[in-house]
Simulated assay, not measured.
Amino acid sequence: MSSILKFIKYAFTKYPIASNSLVYGTLYVGAEFSQQTISRKVLNKEPIIYDRQMLTCFGILGVTVIAPVYQYWYRWLDKKFIGTSYKIVAQKLLLDQFLMTPQILVIFYVAMSIMEKKKDIFEECKQKIIPTFKSSCMFWLPAQTVNFLLIPPSFRVVYVGTCSFAWVNILCWIKRQEY
């Protein structure tokens, strides 16, 4: 078991973007997969026919866009705000939630609209950005407090990816709602 942990540590140290993208992207797709399973099989008792296009969209977005953005963001944040004092953690929380999160949500809605070939790629974003941001505050502020206080910097993206599995289930549910 220790050789597996050594390999994981090596991969995340030597190839952080690739490692984080693989883990984050897998969790991102996994969240959409679980959301489709819950909404179709559990809640509606339908036979499961997975929407592969949506799974692909989540995979592309998670692996190629969101994970690398988070990798560079957390690297910058950890270099700029060093330590785990309450003041430093509060600064990181505020910047993460009120500077980065709105941008990530816009990227999410606009990129998904582009991949879904919607006529107005901004319509869904305009309708859902405020309720999504409010929900993200309730979810991410406690999660990021744990992140900035307890998680080593090399594992921040994986931790966020793990939390994102739950968050993206919420996000998928919000995305499916009509406003």
Rank of each mutant, 00 (worst) to 15 (best):
I4D: 15
K9N: 12
K9R: 13
K9I: 08
Y10L: 14
A11N: 05
F12C: 15
F12R: 12
T13L: 05
S19Q: 14
S19A: 12
S21I: 04
V23C: 01
V23T: 10
V23E: 03
V23G: 02
Y24M: 04
Y24T: 07
Y24F: 05
T26A: 01
Y28R: 03
V29A: 06
V29I: 08
V29K: 01
V29E: 01
G30D: 04
G30I: 13
G30E: 07
A31P: 11
E32V: 11
E32R: 07
E32Y: 08
S34A: 05
Q35I: 14
Q35K: 06
Q36G: 01
T37H: 14
I38F: 14
S39E: 04
S39K: 15
R40W: 13
K45Q: 14
K45R: 13
P47E: 08
P47Q: 06
I48Q: 12
I49A: 12
D51F: 10
F58C: 11
I66H: 00
P68F: 01
V69P: 06
V69T: 05
Q71P: 13
Q71D: 08
W73R: 09
W73E: 10
Y74F: 12
W76D: 04
W76R: 02
L77Y: 15
D78L: 10
D78T: 12
K79A: 07
F81M: 02
I82W: 03
G83H: 07
T84P: 10
T84V: 11
K87I: 01
I88F: 06
V89D: 03
V89G: 00
V89K: 02
Q91S: 04
Q91T: 09
K92F: 15
K92Y: 13
L94P: 02
L94N: 04
L95R: 08
D96M: 03
D96N: 02
T101E: 10
T101R: 01
P102Y: 05
Q103S: 13
I104V: 07
L105A: 11
V110A: 10
S113H: 05
M115V: 03
K117L: 14
K117D: 12
K118I: 05
K118S: 09
D120W: 12
D120N: 13
I121E: 06
I121Y: 08
F122K: 07
E123A: 10
Q127D: 06
K128C: 15
I130C: 10
T132R: 15
F133K: 12
S136C: 14
C137F: 03
M138K: 09
M138I: 09
F139M: 00
F139W: 01
W140I: 01
P142K: 04
A143Q: 02
T145I: 07
V146E: 00
V146R: 01
N147S: 04
F148C: 08
F148H: 04
L150G: 10
L150S: 11
L150K: 02
I151S: 00
I151P: 01
P152I: 00
P153I: 05
P153E: 01
S154H: 11
S154A: 14
S154Q: 07
F155T: 07
F155W: 08
F155N: 13
V157D: 12
Y159D: 04
V160M: 00
V160P: 02
V160R: 01
G161H: 02
G161L: 08
T162N: 07
F165D: 00
C172F: 10
W173N: 15
W173P: 10
I174E: 10
K175R: 14
Q177F: 12
Q177C: 15
E178G: 14
E178V: 06
E178F: 05
Y179C: 12
